[in-house]
């Protein structure tokens, strides 16, 4: 099972070749109470140590498939189940320094059954998380 926080300890790591890291990735627990069509996920913004990484540039991996924000919008028949996680892939040349970071996440969900002004709702989380290896 997953940690209660949206942000998971496991899975926070640098990506790309060692010495030439292209970014980092982070697992987020499905924060909605129902399995959610990917087309209802409007993007994921990540902040690390105060540096904002906007949703438009982040990719999301679910299972073995990687989605751009536009590809999420098109994925109307694929769902992210409750009890599963998405991996957010964040571009950042050089990756993050090993050690403990303050990480914030904001998952944009569209809830068609909410009043139109509130259909886009953001599920937020913030906690410390640790990069083990450069």
């Amino acid at each position: 099972m997953l940690e209660r926080s949206h942000i998971q300890s496991t899975g926070f790591r640098n990506v790309g070749p060692v010495g030439e890291r292209t970014g980092f990735e982070l697992r987020l627990r499905q924060a909605n109470y129902r399995g959610t069509r990917l087309s209802l996920i409007e993007g994921v913004t990540i902040t690390v140590d105060g540096v904002l990484y906007p949703a438009a540039h982040n990719l999301v991996r679910i299972g073995s498939r990687v989605y751009t924000p536009a590809e999420l919008d098109a994925a109307t028949e694929t769902r992210l189940a409750v009890g599963e996680y998405m991996t957010v892939i964040v571009p950042r040349p050089g990756g993050l320094a090993p050690g403990v970071h303050w990480v914030e996440s904001a998952i944009g969900y569209r809830h068609p059954y909410f009043p139109p002004a509130h259909q886009s709702a953001v599920a937020r989380d913030a906690r410390h998380a640790t990069i083990v290896m450069a």
């Binding site: 069509r37 087309s39 109307t76 068609p112 059954y113 259909q119």
Partner: peptide, 9 residues
């Protein structure tokens, strides 16, 4: 269950 009327943006 849900009828996600605004299924895409």
């Amino acid at each position: 269950c849900w009828v996600d009327t605004r299924i895409q943006l």
